[in-house]
């Protein structure tokens, strides 16, 4: 059809008007629907990881669930900008730093939920509870190194022999949580020395964990500081020949700290009962076994067992640490800037 025919059949005013009307109609249709009677979750954990278990919750309990996925930081800023009108009932975050950053907006959880996990995996003021655990580990290239070459303590990586061989992600939330843990356990000064020591070794900087794992396998770096479970994703897609593995730091210092992904109920929630049922479900054996089996994380309640090949939590020397102390992100960022790790 030529443009002339088109124009004769449908003169410009007609199709412009038609466009307007269609657009308005579509928008009006789209504006329908409300979130009442639903449980609304803002999840900083990816859908590919938690989507299936949330679906399972919905099927088991019959509670309607709506999930908004995003980065921790985006969701926190969104909840803050929404203020009292936030539709969110639950905030499900991937690290304790993010939970701490929003803790003034959380309701206090009942003891029957808090009591499900050990004290080291929840906030002591009762505002959030850990759902699954992730250990900080060192990923290493298996062509260049063996377990025996690797130290037990993260402090040994300041040795000049690691010059040019380290990868890290200073802007990443888990990394910063680890530095906060280090400040609490080892003190400001020792942490500063560690940061300066690593920096003197010319580490390569990555935006987050996954590129570090890939770079370690490629031999772009020999070792990298990451969370433990990313490796298993790579193994699932690339097979056993993937040439990087995890090394668990067993010296009991901050390098091997076990962080948690956790959740909390917003103080503006209008579905508190459903929200509490959600947290209970996430800490039930079924869901905990899901995290152990499907996301390769550590279950936090008694009875569920971690994936074969993971060092059990009981064998990791967990430093005595109140995870809610990890709130002091400001102090960590200040230190990172003072040492020139962050601009």
């Amino acid at each position: 059809m030529s443009y002339q025919t088109f124009q004769r059949l449908l003169p410009a005013p007609v199709w412009i008007a038609a466009l307007f009307v269609t657009l308005l109609a579509l928008l009006l249709v789209a504006c329908g629907g409300s979130s009442a009677g639903k449980l609304t979750i803002y999840s900083g954990r990816e859908e590919s990881l938690v989507g299936p278990v949330i679906e399972q919750f919905s099927e088991t309990t019959g509670i309607d669930v709506a999930v908004k996925y995003g980065k921790n930081s985006e969701l926190i800023a969104t909840i803050r900008e929404e203020g009292g009108n936030s539709p969110a009932d639950i905030f499900f975050a991937s690290d304790p730093g993010a939970l701490g950053a929003l803790s003034d907006r959380f309701a206090t959880l009942p003891d029957r939920i808090l009591g499900l996990v050990s004290e080291s995996f929840r906030s002591r003021d009762g505002t959030w509870v850990g759902i699954s655990g992730r250990a900080r580990v060192v990923i290493y290239n298996t062509n260049e190194l063996t377990e025996a070459d690797l130290p037990d303590s993260i402090f040994d990586f300041t040795d000049p022999k690691w010059r040019g061989r380290i990868g890290w992600a200073p802007t990443n939330g888990s990394f910063q949580a680890m530095v906060t843990a280090m400040r609490i356990i080892e003190g400001e000064e020792r942490t500063r020395q560690w940061l300066e020591g690593i920096k003197a070794n010319d580490p390569k900087e990555y935006p987050k964990n996954t590129p570090i794992v890939q770079a370690a396998a490629d031999g772009e770096i020999d070792v990298g500081f990451v969370n433990h479970y990313y490796l298993y994703r790579f193994l699932a897609e690339q097979g056993e020949s993937f040439s990087a593995r995890n090394h668990f730091l067993t010296a009991g210092d901050a390098g091997g700290v076990v962080l948690v992904a956790g959740a909390s109920i917003l103080d503006t929630s209008d579905s508190v009962e459903e929200a509490e049922r959600f947290l209970e479900f996430m800490l039930s054996p079924v869901a905990q076994q899901y995290f152990a089996g499907q996301t390769f994380e550590y279950p936090l309640v008694e009875g569920a067992r971690p994936q074969v090949g993971l060092i059990p939590l009981s064998e990791i020397e967990i430093p005595d640490l109140d995870l809610s102390q990890l709130v002091d992100l400001e102090g960590t960022l200040k230190l990172l800037r003072e040492t020139g790790v962050l601009p």
Binding site: L49, F234, E237
Partner: peptide, 29 residues
């Protein structure tokens, strides 16, 4: 970023699916 933050809850697009899978290292997905 705008799609993630402002879309109706549960509204998935190809871009958000790609991002969600990629950031959890589900490269095939």
């Amino acid at each position: 970023p705008v799609t993630l933050i402002l879309s109706p809850i549960g509204f998935k697009t190809l871009a958000t699916s790609t991002w969600s899978a990629a950031s959890a290292a589900f490269f095939a997905q």
